[in-house]
Computed example of a mutant assay.
Amino acid sequence: MRAATSLVALFHQWTLAITEGVVVHDEGGWLRIEEDELPWVNGLDLVAFPVDLEEHVLRQRQTECGVDLAAVDEGFDRREKLIHAVAAVKAALKK
């Protein structure tokens, strides 16, 4: 069984980070991210790590991945509309 492309990319990023000393073992044996080093490593994708991202970085990545940012900005109202639309379709199918 082959790993998903996204998983392979994630492991590649973490391997690079370990090699570059960005991900290290702390005193307790846990992997820890040296956040000050993250932006400086060539080829490292910040989105692959559990760190706070500036909003413009996150929104840029979402756009690259095809996320409808207008829907994201609409937030809860959009979710409510979808819930009602799904309920209407379910009701129509039961008839």
Rank of each mutant, 00 (worst) to 15 (best):
E35L: 11
R61E: 04
V23A: 06
T63E: 05
V22K: 11
E55F: 05
E54G: 01
R78E: 12
F49K: 00
H56R: 03
S6M: 00
E35H: 07
Q62E: 07
L46H: 01
E34N: 04
E37R: 15
Q62G: 08
H84W: 14
V8T: 01
I18N: 01
V57I: 03
R2Y: 11
V47M: 01
H84N: 13
A85D: 12
E74A: 14
A92Y: 12
L10Q: 11
S6C: 02
K90M: 15
V72N: 00
L16N: 02
E35Q: 14
L69S: 05
K90L: 14
V86C: 07
A85N: 06
V41H: 03
P39L: 09
Q62N: 05
A92R: 13
E74I: 14
D26A: 11
W30H: 07
A9G: 03
K95E: 05
Q60I: 12
V67Y: 08
V47I: 04
Q13Y: 05
L44T: 03
R78M: 10
H56G: 00
S6Q: 00
F49C: 01
T63W: 04
E80V: 15
V23F: 04
E34R: 11
L31A: 05
R32K: 14
L58P: 06
E74H: 12
R79G: 10
L46C: 00
A71R: 09
H56F: 01
N42C: 12
K95R: 10
A92I: 09
T15R: 13
L7C: 00
E55N: 01
V41F: 01
A92G: 10
P39M: 12
E54W: 03
L46E: 00
Q60H: 06
Q60C: 09
E34I: 06
A88K: 07
G75K: 12
I33S: 12
A17N: 08
G43P: 06
L82N: 09
E37Q: 13
F76I: 15
S6L: 02
V57A: 02
G21P: 11
A92L: 10
E35F: 11
L10W: 10
F76P: 13
R59I: 06
R61D: 04
E27W: 01
L93N: 12
I33G: 07
K95Q: 09
H25K: 14
